[in-house]
């Protein structure tokens, strides 16, 4: 029974990651449009921000995993491994306040029921919102061009792809 649950979890994980990859190929259009607008570049110059597109790709995949953090799953292991590493780095660097707040938010999915608040469109919009302001905080420049719109779009797209895939699976059942 446990083995079956583990297999189902792995299939679910692979399915969501695959859907996330396909979603990125759609999301990359508004992401590229934002980068070009912000940098005031021609389309041919987009490759100069290849690293931003790569980060967006991984954020899209992570976004596709986030809703399943409320259940024992491979997605939960991946997301929490990243959060744990981030928390430990913050502690080692002496940012205890940041580590405490990150830890607090990381505990919350553990008390939520599966397919509960984390599986809602509102969560898909709100949870990635800090990504919008991370570049502003990192650079210290209060300009709208500094907003992490590309990161936000990538994560929301991944998150939405998970919700839509779940609806499709539920319909089939």
């Amino acid at each position: 029974m446990a083995q079956r649950g583990l297999c189902e979890s792995t299939v679910r994980f692979r399915g969501h990651v695959t859907v996330g990859i396909f979603t990125y190929f759609i999301a990359v259009i508004p992401i590229a449009a934002w980068i070009l607008y912000r940098q005031d570049w021609a389309v041919t110059e987009l490759w100069r921000r290849w690293w931003e597109l790569l980060i967006c790709f991984f954020l899209c995949l992570l976004g596709a995993m986030v809703p399943d953090t409320d259940i024992r799953s491979k997605s939960q292991q991946v997301i929490y491994s990243i959060l744990l590493a981030a928390d430990l780095i913050l502690i080692l660097l002496g940012y205890y306040r940041g580590a405490a707040i990150l830890g607090f938010w990381a505990i919350i999915p553990n008390i939520l029921p599966h397919r509960g608040p984390l599986h809602s469109y509102l969560a898909a919009i709100i949870i990635p919102a800090p990504l919008l302001f991370l570049p502003v905080i990192a650079t210290g420049k209060l300009e709208y061009q500094q907003l992490g719109v590309s990161y936000y779009i990538a994560t929301v797209s991944g998150y939405m792809s998970h919700l839509l895939a779940d609806i499709r699976i539920m319909d089939k059942r």
Partner: peptide, 11 residues
């Protein structure tokens, strides 16, 4: 510090 440790243990 203690809250950060709780976060690590919880994860």
């Amino acid at each position: 510090k203690v809250a950060a440790m709780i976060g690590v243990f919880a994860m």
